[in-house]
Write a protein that binds this DNA or RNA. Structure first.
Lengths: 192, 192
DNA sequence: CAGGTCATGTAATATGTTACATGATTTC
DNA sequence: GAAATCATGTAACATATTACATGACCTG
């Protein structure tokens, strides 16, 4: 479900082709929600049928076709109503925590090695997200600039700060995980 | 995949019937990994075929049958090797953050109302997890007591602390989310 | 003209969710 | 004897992943 709304939200910035959306969900938006190529194309056709987006065929060269999708009024309405409502927390399903639950069955050094990698990976993620957060605050990302174009200037700061706040969320959860993993390593040392 | 390892890990405490496992993944373990009834029964049969667990039929009364599953040596080996290895971070897929990404499209009060509920829900989760964490540290949960029975006493403290640490992870991520939501509410007030 | 990028699609598989179905046993 | 609990299963559906497939266009 969320992928659908992510797509609607991206299209609010400007109309995009399927190919561009695929790229987006592989990189930039993959930072919040990721989806493989095959899922995007099938979803776009479904969303078009439901009237949430409208596709226009364009031709590059003589034969290469692409379909550019844009938000319909219905799609916009659907998006804003979803964004305004509280949705139930999804069931927790955290495979690293399942793994940690059984660390007592293996040696401290093996468990600590896993946690060291968790620290490294999450610190790298924090780095990426911090950069993106800063770019958003400076209104310096392609998509945000598109959005600002069709919104009154009085809203620009609010928009940039709200977008940046999402990445603050990613940063703080990854930071929490780093701290948790470090505490785990210390705990394992105690019983080495 | 993780559900399989969660099942193996639970069975390491003691053999359990399908029904007991269903209950477990609906409540206690639902705190780390949740799964519906239908998934459990089908998975158990698959795991038995692969030789990871062994089922024994028992009869209650005259006709009611139940199958009690226990870890096989192969299952134990599979579990410890999975626990010892680092597995790639799953793709990020956080529907609340997708929602927050488009808060700029709706009024501050609607967005703040959503975040207020996020705060309340996550504070409740933190409460539950704190309790469970404390019970683990006191070696006061049914499953942990089962586990301790067949492990040398010198390991008991290590086991309890490692299990509790998992719930520290849940607590810290929910706490981080609470702080994030509160900061969001403040941000929205600024632009009310 | 070779290799990279543009552009879209299908198929098979895995995983997870909701709903429905059945019958035995225990408890009040 | 009715209601709750024990116990297991199937079917339909939604969602997500991997792999494969095809062909046009652009750049050096």
């Amino acid at each position: 479900m969320s992928l659908q709304y992510a797509v609607l939200g991206v299209l609010e910035a400007r109309p995009l082709s399927g190919y561009e959306l695929v790229q987006f969900f592989d990189t930039a938006a993959g930072w919040v929600w990721s989806a493989p190529q095959s899922q995007i194309y099938t979803l776009l056709r479904q969303m078009e049928q439901r009237g949430l987006i409208a596709g226009t065929e364009q031709v590059r060269g003589t034969k290469l076709k692409r379909t550019v999708y844009s938000l319909t009024p219905l799609g916009r309405k659907e998006l804003t109503s979803w964004v305004s409502a509280r949705h139930p927390e999804p069931p927790i399903r955290d495979s690293l925590l399942v793994q940690a639950l059984f660390f007592d069955m293996v040696g401290s050094s093996a468990a600590a090695a896993v946690l060291e990698e968790v620290v490294a990976d999450n610190e790298a993620l924090v780095e990426h997200w911090r950069e993106h957060r800063d770019r958003l605050l400076n209104k310096d990302t392609t998509l945000l600039r598109e959005r600002l174009k069709h919104r009154p200037e009085t809203e620009h700061d609010r928009m940039a700060e709200l977008k940046a706040h999402v990445f603050d969320g990613l940063i703080s959860s990854a930071t929490a995980r780093v701290e948790w993993a470090k505490a785990g390593i210390e705990l394992l040392k105690k019983y080495r």
